[in-house]
């Protein structure tokens, strides 16, 4: 059974929401990236909005946008990946616990500090009682959600699945993580990327996702297992943060000279950043063009029908493949 990506959207540090791949970058002079705020009131009533922290606003607005694009009111499943969940609410809740000597914590922050708040809020807004799941697997959180969505469709348990990845970055979190190895030399960021995966035919076909937790990856074997001939790949989107990043050299040596896009230097590193890459892939396949500012190696292609995404943070690797449907 084939799986298609019926709609996609991304809220990020760039002007991506409800748009195509931007042709220029918003300046990022801060020490970490925050999202460009969309007009939330277009999707969420002010009454509900006031209680939502930025990660919930981003997750909900992005979800409602893709559902609207796909013309779906109730998905058969809602699957969300988030590495660190609602950090601002968690920070407020814990700070209050300490300051108030474990008395009188603010109920809203407590209620909304759990990882599954975003998926829960989406379900509440849609009055959707269907399958609702949140995956938290650090830098493979989005990929795990995607794998679950894929299996739900392949097993015949769902026809349309809302799936996405969302994370947030605050001053407090930045202060805590800036010294960590996994974010060394990297500008942290945040974002939300959501998709409707469907059995119904559309332009972008979702071919699969591979999740690898290892210090060494046999790329040739992994790509072969995905049924992928390297010659057929038109475009690669890599999770590199810096020029010639050591961890990506092995991968680049296997794929050779292919058109190569990167995105983390412009949206930041976060646990579900690969959801932004998947949104990029959808846009490139749909529009058949790549704005120059996203190119890492300045190699262009005449067609963008098969896009491979590789992400790596520490020992967490993932490969995702999307193709243009022959319609």
């Amino acid at each position: 059974m084939d799986i298609y990506i019926k709609s996609s959207d991304a809220i990020s540090a760039q002007l991506s929401f409800e748009k195509g791949l931007p042709e220029y970058f918003e300046s990022g002079e801060e020490s970490f990236y925050n999202c460009v705020k969309p007009e939330y009131k277009k999707y969420i009533s002010p009454k509900l909005l006031r209680r939502m922290s930025p990660i919930i606003r981003n997750g909900v607005a992005c979800s409602l946008s893709v559902l609207k694009q796909a013309g779906i009111e109730q998905p058969d499943a809602i699957v969300v990946g988030t590495a660190l969940g609602c950090l601002r609410d968690t920070t407020s809740f814990l700070t209050q616990l300490i300051e108030e000597k474990e008395e009188l914590p603010n109920p809203t922050h407590f209620i909304q500090s759990t990882h599954n708040t975003i998926a829960g809020q989406i379900a509440l807004l849609l009055k959707c009682h269907n399958y609702n799941f949140t995956f938290s697997q650090m830098h493979n959180s989005f990929e795990t959600a995607l794998l679950d969505a894929q299996m739900l469709i392949l097993d015949g348990k769902a026809s349309n699945v809302l799936v996405g990845g969302v994370d947030e970055m605050s001053e407090t979190t930045y202060d805590l993580i800036k010294g960590l190895d996994c974010y060394k030399g990297t500008k942290p960021g945040e974002g939300a990327g959501f998709f409707v995966l469907s059995r119904e035919e559309s332009v972008v076909k979702f071919e699969g996702v591979r999740i690898i937790n290892s210090d060494k990856v046999d790329f040739e074997k992994e790509l072969k297992d995905m049924g992928l001939e390297l010659d057929e790949v038109d475009l690669v989107i890599g999770g590199n943060n810096q020029e010639d990043e050591a961890g990506y050299m092995d991968f680049c040596s296997v794929i050779g000279n292919k058109p190569y896009l990167w995105y983390k230097p412009f949206v930041g590193e976060y646990g579900t950043a690969s959801s932004f890459a998947m949104w990029m892939a959808c846009k490139v396949i749909e529009e058949q063009k790549v704005p120059e500012c996203w190119m890492k190696n300045r190699i262009a292609s005449e067609k963008y029908n098969k896009v491979l995404i590789y992400n790596k943070v520490g020992n967490e690797h993932s490969l995702m493949l999307m193709t243009k449907n022959k319609v």
């Binding site: 108030e100 009188l104 109920p107 209620i111």
Partner: peptide, 17 residues
């Protein structure tokens, strides 16, 4: 103001704090 039950909890906390 169209407040709800979570707001009521917040007001109870506010009164005490």
């Amino acid at each position: 103001l169209a407040l709800d039950s979570i707001d009521a909890l917040e007001i109870i906390v506010l009164l005490e704090k």
